[in-house]
Amino acid sequence: MEFPERLRYTKEHEWVRVEGDEVVFGITDFAQDQLGDIVYIELPEPGASLQRMDAFGSVEAVKTVTDLYAPVSCEVVAVNEALTDDPARVNNSPYGDGWMVRAKLGDAAQLDELLSAEAYQKLVAELGG
């Protein structure tokens, strides 16, 4: 299971990559593994304004569905349209092709509250992952 060093993480099993004043986020390798085969992803409209921990979409697997929570407050710039036709990208490449949302960062200070790769890996280990 991968936990790339350059990313930050949330307790809700999402990852965040900072790119200038933008953030890109998706769900972690652990999350996709727990969900199993992903069949559908519901994402917000570009332009949507999200507060940290807002439910902004959902990921649907065969027998389970989970809400997605905004890791930081932000304004959606783009969503990964390719996931509509090929949601399995999230299974195959959670940190790459399986990205979900690109957004303009609201409050940069919130980034400090995210977990490091090491801290997240520890959390996953506690969950038996």
């Binding site: 649907e60 697997a61 065969v62 027998k63 389970t64 569905v65």
Partner: peptide
């Protein structure tokens, strides 16, 4: 689409 249904949602 059993995820729509009560036993999951």
């Amino acid at each position: 689409l059993q995820t729509r249904e009560q036993h999951i949602r």
